[in-house]
Design a binder for these strands. Sequence first.
DNA 1: TTGAAAGCGCTAACAG
DNA 2: CTGTTAGCGCTTTCAA
Lengths: 330, 330
Amino acid sequence: MARATINDVATSAGVSTATVSRLLNGLNVSSGTADRIWKAVAELDYTPNALTRGVFAGRSSTIGVIIRDLDSPYYLELMRGIEEAATAHDSLVMFANTFSRVDREWAHVQKMDEQRVRGLILTTGPDSDARARRMAAAGTPCVIVGRAADLSPNLHSISLDNIKAGQLIGGHLLACGRSSIAVITMGNREQGILRIRGLRSVLNEHDIELPDSAVRAVEAKEEVFTAIAELLADARANGSPIDAVVCMSDLLTRHIYEALHKLGRRVPDDVGLIAVGDFDWAETLGMTVIAQPTYEMGLEAATLIVTAPQEPVRIVQEPRLIVRRSCGEE
Amino acid sequence: MARATINDVATSAGVSTATVSRLLNGLNVSSGTADRIWKAVAELDYTPNALTRGVFAGRSSTIGVIIRDLDSPYYLELMRGIEEAATAHDSLVMFANTFSRVDREWAHVQKMDEQRVRGLILTTGPDSDARARRMAAAGTPCVIVGRAADLSPNLHSISLDNIKAGQLIGGHLLACGRSSIAVITMGNREQGILRIRGLRSVLNEHDIELPDSAVRAVEAKEEVFTAIAELLADARANGSPIDAVVCMSDLLTRHIYEALHKLGRRVPDDVGLIAVGDFDWAETLGMTVIAQPTYEMGLEAATLIVTAPQEPVRIVQEPRLIVRRSCGEE
DNA sequence: TTGAAAGCGCTAACAG
DNA sequence: CTGTTAGCGCTTTCAA
């Protein structure tokens, strides 16, 4: 049951380990010797030890990914993109999920560093930026996905143009004749803040205000129903009933949709609904959304790791409006 | 930029590498020496090399996962479970996605073996079973998830009781007064076949037949619409219009739902709909489903790797019927 | 409690 | 084209 080593293969083929190593790495070996070695490899079921190779190279060929919380299909697409690029470059992907716990975040970055990953992709909040920056400085390329982080050597970022996303939303809503808008966002993340800023800018151009009271930052999905109920009630009390709800986080979309239904508001007849983040059922349900090229982001992130450009790179992706039915006609 | 090694730490602290190694591994070291070593570790930003440790141990502490196609939220849950258990045991998770290409499957198993993973979890089809069995025989625990594979030493399986799932479906449909049933399944996978068998058994007990013509195996989502349209038309022509559609694969659920809507059939008024595989929107849409404990399966799979029982283990999970509205009242 | 030395499985000069 | 030799960074006897 003991695994065959390169030594066993060499002995069995009657050559030195160096020759075996050379053959395995595609260097020149006479065809006779090669045959004997391959035969030995097959007989002994020899599988080279990537760990040892990594020791020698100073790093492994694995790409590390740290996910904040594997709770959204967004990550499915991102990981597919990463995996695709990694496989193309003969890399594997190692991932860790923090379950949104910041303390785990740091530990996972550390672990990835110990594994001597070829590069690290982070979808986490800014808490572990410092650690990532150290890794980057020490020579491990890092890519921060989703936020436009402060760059430094070897530290790149790929993010959505969040301002633009907000503007797209504003433009569409206006075009659909909706101007009394409520916004639901998740926590106080940078992404949401920028999207709201973009939305406001468009609204303001048309002399429409988006008062702070019309924006709710919830901490959890469970708060959505109450938030929506209050938003609708307040606006009605003010004499300007809401005619569109904007969802700034894909985690919340379903809950907003559900809340609206429970509150007896028909979409889009009574109220429009638009969300950031496309998803499978959106098509079926006719939900208008702002899509971000998630798969491509994964692809680019992994490619950045592999190509390891000297200068830090900041990639900003264009959001795309997908008009379906949930805001009515333009 | 060159990374500090254990040697650098030892030199800096004025001790031997052996002492540093001992401290790092929790063995006894006098407190004075320990202080000096920790100081050196901090100063040099020393991060132990897990690769080298793995070489020594003969294997890494990483758990490998091979996913057939990262296309379903099913995997999100599974991976969360795996990750949770792995983290609890101080392991990382390495994953590879085959994008449903069988040729990649073999290559990925090979790669995982080269990485000397602590254990391997496979969600793939039976094509790479042989390779996994070899790995298992060589001492790497393997867990096949989703299929009740033939067991051998170190090769375990975790699967759903698919027959039972089919029976649950049959029971519920009957209870809702539906007996003219159409089934859509994905390809010719074992899971689907067993589920249909379970469904038939219940139906037969009540002298109801499920003719082969009422069962369609599609190869891709795109075929769903046509399949549904034909199924409905055929049954109507036969004078026994379909009153329930069963979806045996979570990948197809949305497309069946959509096809039914496009064909003008209201759920559940005109036709009932029940699917294997729970999902977020199912709750919102009132879709009755058979849920499988995916997160728990991930948890158990990873735990099996870590505990590495000598005897092969076969875990069979109980499916659970979640009644919502899509089949009407019981 | 500590250090010297050997070695894990592999690669990379350097001769031959 | 091939073997010898010296490591990669770490762990683990074995003595001291």
